[in-house]
């Protein structure tokens, strides 16, 4: 009768799968993105080149292609025996980290140069200057674009479903194969995604307001 009620356990499993995959790859993308952004503004030319190469590679490759590479190339060349979930995590977070990096870098450029000069003239190293002075002041500008990036990540995680990782979008395929009315399935899937994306934008709005007051 009702797809959602009949298969709620599967739906819940898919929903939780999407949330976990988004959270984990969001976290890893965040860490990678900040580090790579640091590379891109570093005074060391090889690090800068690495950062630029990373962003160019992962920002300009279709995500599906990255998934295919994670599935069929990475196990052969680098690390055999990774679980599908890990492969999905890597593909998603590497891809997203390129966008996080550019958002963070644009935030860094909004911090007046004098702030970094003052830090350096006190004897701080490059990484201290970045960590203690520049990044904290860049955070406010970076929050808004980051929220968009994480919402995009949530929806991009649907690709993992096509690669047999348990997540929300995969639920749709299983059930439409069983002959349920497609419109209802899509409606529930869409609502599931909305819950996650609305939570993300709500969270980031809160963050923006907090940072706005506390400078």
């Amino acid at each position: 009768m009702n797809v959602l009620l009949d298969h709620f356990a599967d739906f819940r499993e898919g929903f939780v799968g999407t949330v976990l995959l988004t959270l984990a790859s969001g976290l890893l993308a965040m860490v990678l993105g900040v580090v790579i952004a640091g590379f891109r503004v570093s005074p060391v030319p090889p690090l800068r080149a690495f950062g630029t190469a990373w962003v160019t590679l992962f920002r300009n490759t279709p995500l599906t292609l990255l998934f295919l590479i994670a599935w069929f190339v990475v196990p052969v060349i680098f690390a055999p025996g990774m679980s599908p979930w890990t492969k999905a995590l890597l593909a998603l977070s590497f891809y997203t980290s390129a966008f996080v990096c550019e958002a963070v870098r644009s935030g860094i450029t909004t911090v007046p140069l004098g702030q970094a000069e003052a830090a350096r003239s006190l004897g701080m190293t490059f990484s201290q200057t970045l960590r203690l002075i520049v990044l904290p002041q860049a955070t406010r500008t970076v929050v808004a674009p980051l929220s968009s990036i994480f919402i995009a990540l949530t929806k991009n995680s649907a690709i993992a479903g096509a690669f047999s990782v348990t997540e929300l979008f995969g639920w749709q395929k299983t059930l439409s194969d069983q002959g349920y009315a497609i419109a209802w399935i899509f409606l529930w899937v869409a609502l599931g995604y909305l819950v996650i994306t609305f939570s993300i934008s709500g969270l980031f709005q809160l963050l923006e307001r907090r940072l706005g007051v506390a400078r």
Partner: peptide
């Protein structure tokens, strides 16, 4: 960096760390 720590610099535009209090500005280095 070590050498710069021995050379104090005062800028035209002050360049105090905007996200730190006055006290923290003087403590940080």
């Amino acid at each position: 960096a070590r050498l710069r720590a021995d050379v104090g610099m005062v800028f035209q535009s002050f360049n105090l760390f905007a996200h730190k209090t006055v006290l923290e500005n003087v403590m940080l280095g």
